[in-house]
Design a protein around this nucleic acid. Structure first.
Lengths: 246, 246
DNA sequence: GCGGCTATTTGATCCAAATCAATGTGGCAT
DNA sequence: ATGCCACATTGATTTGGATCAAATAGCCGC
């Protein structure tokens, strides 16, 4: 199905993320939710890891002893049915956490869809940290709660939206995500897709053919342009919003 | 669409939940995750409320100043598209929390589908409690994380399972839920549905006709029986499991 | 630039589930 | 009991998106 079976490599001399300009600590990019002290401490116990394009970072069903905080790149979370049908339950971007799930096992596989860097923590180290910084847990609670709300949006999308609405919602969502990553550089109307059509299809509960045809129809209507396979220009944001919701 | 527009009634002399046999405190049923001290304190700041069948407890988009802990009954969480298409993103049972979502607004409506009792907290009271019992937050984090995993299961179901697989998964899931509520009384193979066919359809991303037909086909295959509209006997659990996953 | 490979697009056909349309059933108020 | 009404089932028809099947376009190593 997918040839992705390398464990992430912990480099011998681990590449460290850049230091924060403000406070001098290295970056665990927790969406700006942490103060410097917390950042510094989290960084102290982190191992910096890299995963190459296509490699699997965690495997569905594996013992979940590690938690990751993504610092670079994009990760897809996948679930499989025994016969190979696949669902992508989410994409992770820098700042997102991976592996927080309670209980002993990961409930999804996480695969790098481009070169990824992450800070890796042992779960029990993190627990120790929670005791020293009780507010950390509250911040994570907020993050997970936000994720849950997003998951519910996705359920509405998957169960009740048409392919056109799904694609429109997806493009708008991706726009805000990419914009948040680098507000300076990105023009919100010019998306660089990190994922393939297959990924989009598995994220939206469609086939690649339907994704392709739906994008084509949006091009025909002058709402988007496809300068290349991995680029999408949004020409008419207003109308995209209109399509996304009845 | 649905004639559900009564705010929950805070009874003048609020009915208090039963005291715990072990420790004498009143029940905030947090899935057994709390110790007696925490329970007692949570109970102290709770208002006990009741909602009648069909009433809406919280409205999508409303200011979310209240958190509820369900003690009796069943609640459905719904999201609507502007044109009325509906998705039920989950059902809540006694012990479940409602309204934890961060940010200022509820992201779904919550409706009682039978008579419901709940302990109601002001969010800021809960925050105060978190400071006194820092572990509480960690426990909630675990609960929300578990919910998130369930949400991802549901995404796989919605996007990639066939109607038959959806119904089978639903029945198995409901069985474990109802069983957990009252392990003594319930026989796991005899389900009392709290929800209508429409609710099931909106939960599984199907139409009521398809729900009805699919149940009928399971009856034909001798896998379940429908003694009445709100009762389902599971005759062949093994096969139901087999159907639920390819 | 030239194969060779994979991702993507496009076209033709099919089928499962939605929609449309009755019909049946159970619960409840009178 | 009776009638009413919302809920549920069952049947007929339609259709949107899946599937099957090429064709095309990038992209990489050489």
């Amino acid at each position: 199905m997918h040839s992705v079976d390398q464990k992430p490599e912990n480099l011998d001399a681990p590449a460290r993320p850049k230091r924060c300009q403000d406070c001098g600590v290295r970056h665990v990019s927790l969406c700006g939710a942490l103060d410097c002290m917390e950042l510094a401490e989290m960084d102290r116990i982190a191992i910096h890891t890299r995963s190459i394009d296509g490699s699997t970072i965690v495997y569905e069903g594996d013992e979940s002893a590690q938690v990751y905080n993504l610092t670079e790149g994009t990760v897809r979370l996948t679930r499989l049915l025994p016969d190979g049908r696949r669902s992508i339950t989410g994409f992770l971007f820098p700042g997102d956490f991976l592996g927080l799930s309670c209980g002993g096992k990961y409930v999804y596989s996480a695969e790098a869809i481009n070169p990824v860097s992450a800070c890796q923590f042992r779960k029990r180290d993190l627990d120790t940290l929670f005791e020293r910084f009780p507010k950390l847990e509250g911040r994570l609670l907020n993050m997970v709660t936000t994720e849950l709300a997003a998951a519910q949006d996705q359920m509405l999308l998957l169960s009740r939206k048409t392919p056109k609405e799904k694609i429109a919602s997806f493009l708008l969502w991706l726009g805000t995500k990419l914009d948040r990553l680098d507000p300076a550089m990105s023009q919100k109307d010019q998306l660089d897709l990190p994922m393939t059509r297959t990924d989009i299809a598995d994220y939206l509960g469609l086939t690649i053919e339907t994704v392709s045809r739906t994008l084509a129809s949006l091009v025909r209507d002058g709402i988007i342009a496809l300068p290349s396979r991995r680029q999408i220009h949004i020409l008419d944001n207003e109308q995209l919003i209109e399509i996304a919701e009845g």
